[in-house]
Structures are given as structure tokens and as C-alpha cells.
């Protein structure tokens, strides 16, 4: 058996490195840092079709992530998809005529909400509503339309 104090040191080292490992996984590997630290406010947009959008999908403006989707619900009156987005508080100058569209990252990548700021002087407040939206492009639909069109042109 080793000397007691050496053993203590080694056990201490082991426990410390294990905890460092856990912290590394929490902070460097996963998104813990992104959703714990930041304050945010909510804006709401209704889409005809939100496609493959999911809770926690990114919300970005000009290619920069400024928030994430916090809830997606179906509105039984308007038959639309209501998407709530948490926008980080530091981006509190979004004009209230901003438009939202659902895009796909790359050809097969995941879907995200892209916000296109308009020219209004009024900014969104908490639970502000986006008026102009563009739905997700459903690949099957697009292909269908394309085939239909080219068939018509051939006639």
C-alpha cells in the first residue's frame, strides 16, 4: 500500500480531473452555455407551414444566430403553425416590420428561422408578433410543381 498522503493526492487528482471532464462536456461540448447564460425575449410568428422546424432550432439574422425556437403550436382557428422564438436580449432593436422565413441549411441540413429586418422605427417588444412570414419550402411540393410546370411547357 502506498503512503497515505500520496494516495490522497492521487485520489484528489482523479476526482478533480473527472469533474473537469464533466465541466468540459457541459460547457465545451454541449449547448449549456448558450441557454443558461442569456436573457431573452419572445416574439411570435405564424406560418402556413413550419415544415421540419423543431423546438431549439436556431433563429438567425444575416447568418448570425440570435435566438432559438422555444415552442411550436398549431392554431385551430387560423389553421396555422404558431412559432414562438426566444431572441437574446442584446438584440432588442429588431424593427416591428421584420419578416420571418423558414430556410434550410444546405440541401439536406436542418431548418431554421431567418429574420429579415425591415425599416420601421418601432422595435419588437416581448411577445411581439411578426406580420409577414414565408413558410418552409417543402421539397416534395417544390419538385411536384417543377415537374408539373415542365410538363405544361412541353405541350
Amino acid at each position: 500500500m502506498q503512503h497515505t498522503s500520496t494516495q490522497d493526492t492521487l485520489v484528489g487528482l482523479f476526482v478533480a480531473s473527472g469533474i473537469v471532464g464533466l465541466f468540459f462536456l457541459a460547457l465545451q461540448v454541449s449547448n449549456l452555455s448558450s441557454f443558461v447564460e442569456q436573457d431573452s425575449y419572445t416574439i411570435i410568428a405564424s406560418f402556413e407551414n413550419s415544415g421540419g422546424l423543431k423546438v431549439k432550432s436556431p433563429v438567425s439574422a444575416a447568418g448570425v444566430k440570435i435566438g432559438q425556437v422555444s415552442a411550436i403550436n398549431f392554431d385551430p382557428k387560423t389553421y396555422q403553425s404558431v412559432v414562438k422564438m426566444s431572441i437574446y436580449s442584446q438584440y432588442n432593436t429588431l424593427p416591428d416590420d421584420t419578416t420571418a422565413s423558414i430556410f434550410t441549411a444546405g440541401l439536406l441540413g436542418e431548418q431554421y428561422v431567418n429574420l429579415d429586418p425591415g425599416g420601421s422605427d418601432e422595435y419588437f417588444k416581448n411577445n411581439g408578433k411578426i406580420e409577414i412570414t414565408q413558410s418552409a419550402i417543402i421539397l416534395e411540393k417544390a419538385i411536384g410543381q417543377f415537374l408539373f410546370k415542365s410538363a405544361e411547357e412541353k405541350k
Binding site: L25, V29, S30, N31
Partner: peptide, 19 residues
Amino acid sequence: YWSQMQAKLDFQDDIINGV
């Protein structure tokens, strides 16, 4: 490598469940 990892892995679903 790192940003995709951070974007895709969830603290609750992945790290905590692994632990």
C-alpha cells in the same frame, strides 16, 4: 468541428443522460 458539436449536443438530453 466545435461549433456544430455545441449546436447539436444538448446538455440535458445528451450530457445528463450519459451521466
